[in-house]
Design a protein around this nucleic acid. Structure first.
Lengths: 71, 71
DNA sequence: ACAAAATGTAAAATATACTTGACAGATTGT
DNA sequence: ACAATCTGTCAAGTATATTTTACATTTTGT
């Protein structure tokens, strides 16, 4: 359930959750919740995160979990 | 703003908006709004759409618009 | 050991994704 | 021309993403 790819990509840039949150224009809790797998971000936020971390959607948000339902 | 890649991928499978909506478990209006660019789906719904259409996130949901804000 | 920063988590409020129902215009087949 | 399907759109409601505030725990540096 956790998004470890995101956590790893953030660590590779030596950013805290708060750093990434500020660069993405969202709250730290939002980044935390996404890494934790608590809820589903919108695609816009995913794109912003990808741009900030220099990754693509497929690299960070593809297939980290199964058995999922739509919101 | 419109997501023409999604529209094209759906057309390539000869599906109506309603067909795709049912396969994704969402309403037809939701698919319509996404193609129109009216609002931002969640990443889960994007993944479901990609799986149904046999595409990846990068193929359908990367970079089709700029100047966007987060929700 | 201590302080500072980073992380995990929770409750209440707000913004917005998504649904349902409905209707009009456009397209396509006969 | 007609019927059927598809698409665009709107309004009101529900579900959930995201914020703000706050606090406890963990990690890191000295």
């Amino acid at each position: 359930m956790k998004n470890l790819k995101l956590k790893a990509a953030r660590a590779a840039k030596d950013m805290s959750q708060d750093d990434l949150a500020k660069l993405c224009g969202v709250s730290r809790q939002t980044i935390n919740a996404i890494e934790k797998g608590d809820y589903n971000p919108t695609i816009k936020l995913c794109r912003t995160i990808c741009k900030v971390l220099g990754k693509t959607l497929d690299e960070l948000f593809w297939e980290e979990e199964e058995n999922e339902r739509n919101a």
